[in-house]
Amino acid sequence: MFLAWKEIKHSKTRFSLIIGVMVLVSYLVFFLVGLAYGLAQDNRTSIDKWDADGIILTDESNTNINMSMMPKGAINDVNANDAAVIGIAPNVVRQKGTAGDDAKINTTFFGIEPDQFLMPEIIEGKAFENDDEVVADISLKEEEGIVIGDTLQLAGSDKEVKVVGFTEDAKFSVAPVLYTSVSSYQDVRFEQIDESEEGRISAIVVRGSDDTIAGVETGNEDLKIYPISDYINEIPGYTAQVLTFGLMIGFLVVIAAVVIGIFIYVLTMQKSSMFGVMKAQGISSGYIAKSVVIQTFLLAAIGVGIGLLLTGATAMVLPAAVPYQTNLNFLAIIAALLIIMAMVGGAFSVRAVVKIDPLKAIG
């Protein structure tokens, strides 16, 4: 430890370059992890808020909730610990009195019953009590300037809804969610509906026993129940997005290990004469090799630590529109992997240390 740190302090410029490489690589990896996690969460945060075990869709919908349609009364045939109806309708809205493409906002309407468990927690304002009132995701306020009391006009119709409250972490397929009554959802989705009909919904969300869907029955062969985790994985683009970023991050970790390994190996070979003198003085190869490994650890730890600090600082100044979220568990795992892989790469230079012949190295 003493030898490793002493050499780093003596050759500041040389080792600063190595630390700089580690900082840049780790910063890039950490930032990509935050973007990947943020994008993934924006696809599913509203579903996670359900705290549900399963979802019932029509068998013909192929797990696509936008293609699922069933009578509202189907919930009466469902046997579960708790069940709630939901209607989902993507739509484009704009604040009343505004015009132009910049004023258009992609949203998703969730038609729910206020007395069922899908009602979100209100962080500002109040829950909807009447038709044509909505509780919106807080991102509409942070990114679009929508405030409580504002009226939103729906694209392609004369329908208007009023924002009465805000909730957080409510996005579906990256679009902010507007919670409203099932009756208002009918108007958004179908525009006109026969008053004699009981209404149509998209799905039934259920809670089973012991956090599973065991024992949940639909009572209708045209309906199929899916575990909530399976449904999330079937959200269009979600799995492909996660796999793409996962492979990208994995390759970056490997590249970081190779880069730092090459740097340490080159440095080790440049110091072969010095190691030869040390061996001639009776210092064992094991001690020198241990010093090289410790030195690699110090360089990697300092570089990764600075990368973490830069990532945290960047997250604090990013605009709300950037889908970035910090997951401390992911960052800790990636940081540990970067340090371990760097040490594995640096360990290859240990073999070169052991093979150094003192007489040849001294010349």
Rank of each mutant, 00 (worst) to 15 (best):
K9F: 07
T13Y: 13
V25T: 15
F30T: 04
F31R: 07
Y37I: 10
D42G: 15
I47C: 01
D48P: 05
M69H: 08
P71H: 11
A74Q: 07
A89Q: 11
A89S: 15
R94L: 08
Q95I: 12
I105M: 10
N106D: 13
P114W: 01
L118G: 06
A127V: 14
F128M: 03
D137I: 14
S139P: 04
L140E: 01
I146H: 03
D150K: 10
V164S: 00
F166G: 04
T167Q: 03
T167N: 02
A170K: 06
A170N: 09
S184L: 03
D187T: 14
S196I: 12
E198K: 13
G199F: 08
V205C: 01
D211I: 11
G215Y: 10
T218H: 00
N220Q: 11
L223T: 05
I232V: 15
E234H: 13
I235N: 02
Y238L: 07
L247C: 00
M248K: 03
V254N: 06
L267K: 08
K271Y: 11
M274C: 06
V277Y: 12
K290V: 09
L298F: 11
G305Q: 07
A315G: 04
V317F: 10
A321D: 14
L328K: 11
A336C: 11
P358E: 10
